[in-house]
C-alpha cells in the first residue's frame, strides 16, 4: 500500500494521507483530478470495487466533502478518496462511465444534498422524496423541527405528562419485577 501511495504521489498532490486502520486509508485530492485518479486506481492499481460515494456537509467552511470508497481485492485494502467542493452551486464530475452503479449514488446526492452531476443518467429523477420543494433535506441548514411544525398540525385532545410520574402511576401500577436470570459471572 505504501508503494501505491508513493506512485500516486509522483503523479498528483494527495496530502494529507491518513491511515485509520491497517486496511483503511484516506487521501485528499483536488476536484479536477478526480476522474484521473479514479480511473488510474481502477485500471492500474486494482482498486476495482466502488463501495460507496457519499457527501459530508461542512456548513461552517461552506464546503461539501465527497468520499469515494474503493476496495482492492488483491491487497485487501479500502481507500477513501476525499474531495472538497464548493457548497454553493455545487457541481461534480460524474463517474457513471467508470462504474455502472455510480449513477445511483449521484441521484441520491442530487436529491438529498443538492449536488449536481451533469450528464449522469437519471440524476434528476426522484429517489426517496416525491414532490419535495424545500431545500435538500440532508444539508445541515435544513431545520427539521421548523419543517414539521410548519407542515403538520398538532392533534387536538393531547395532553403532556411528566413521563416518569405518568409511567409509574398509569402503566406500571401492577408492575412485578421479572425473575432474575442467572448469568456466568454472577
Amino acid at each position: 500500500m505504501e508503494q501505491i501511495l508513493k506512485r500516486i504521489k509522483e503523479k498528483i498532490e494527495i496530502e494529507p494521507v491518513t491511515k485509520q486502520k491497517s486496511d483503511l486509508y484516506f487521501i485528499t485530492v483536488a476536484k479536477e483530478h478526480i476522474e484521473l485518479i479514479l480511473s488510474y486506481l481502477k485500471d492500474y492499481e486494482g482498486f476495482t470495487h466502488l463501495a460507496f460515494l457519499q457527501a459530508v456537509d461542512y456548513l461552517e467552511d461552506n464546503k461539501f466533502q465527497l468520499t469515494y470508497m474503493l476496495y482492492n481485492y488483491n491487497i485487501k485494502v479500502n481507500l477513501g478518496i476525499k474531495v472538497f467542493i464548493n457548497r454553493e452551486k455545487s457541481e461534480m464530475t460524474s463517474i457513471h462511465k467508470l462504474w455502472s452503479h455510480a449513477w445511483q449514488y449521484q441521484r441520491e446526492l442530487h436529491e438529498l444534498f443538492g449536488i449536481d452531476f451533469p450528464d449522469s443518467p437519471r440524476v434528476h429523477e426522484s429517489f426517496v422524496l416525491e414532490g419535495w420543494e424545500e431545500i435538500p433535506p440532508m444539508r445541515r441548514d435544513f431545520d427539521t423541527l421548523e419543517y414539521s411544525e410548519r407542515t403538520y398540525y398538532k392533534r387536538p385532545g393531547r395532553s403532556t405528562n411528566d413521563p416518569q410520574k405518568y409511567m409509574k402511576e398509569k402503566l406500571y401500577k401492577n408492575y412485578v419485577e421479572a425473575p432474575k436470570i442467572r448469568r456466568d459471572n454472577d
Binding site: 485509520q20 483503511l24 463501495a51 477513501g80
Partner: peptide
C-alpha cells in the same frame, strides 16, 4: 457527554 475526537472511519 461523550465527545469523540475528530476523524472518519469505515467499518464493514
Amino acid at each position: 457527554h461523550w465527545k469523540i475526537p475528530a476523524g472518519q472511519t469505515y467499518i464493514k
